[in-house]
């Protein structure tokens, strides 16, 4: 899976499932960058076939609607959509 890595403060495992064309996904990515958090992200629309299916199954495990952005923190908490305050609370200083 084409996972991109962004370096920053270690807050544990932070994984962003996003779409390359989505405005809210872009805002979420910008917020994490601005907060200086270390995270990984993947553009699910750029994956193909089984890789995309596997990624969707993972997204749906945390967010049954399978919508984007889905931010998975520590493999258990999911923040769905660009929810700035929730993201800041979960990963703030």
């Amino acid at each position: 899976m084409a996972v991109e890595h962004v370096d920053g403060k270690d807050k544990g495992n932070v994984m962003l499932f996003a779409l390359s064309t989505c405005g809210w996904c872009g805002k979420t990515k910008d917020l994490l960058r601005q907060m200086g958090v270390r995270f990984d992200y993947v553009f699910v629309d750029l994956l193909e076939g089984k890789e995309q299916d596997d990624a969707m199954n993972t997204v749906e495990k945390f967010n049954p609607h399978g919508s984007f952005p889905t931010l998975v923190i520590h493999d258990k908490l999911a923040i769905i959509g660009f929810r700035e305050q929730e993201i800041r609370e979960a990963l703030g200083p």
Binding site: T21, C22, G23
Partner: peptide, 27 residues
Amino acid sequence: DFTKNLIRGLLKNEQRYGYRACPCRLA
């Protein structure tokens, strides 16, 4: 700026899928 970014996404979707699918949903 935000709106034009969505329009880029719509044009991208038209190019890759043949229709202007919502840029914030997986087509």
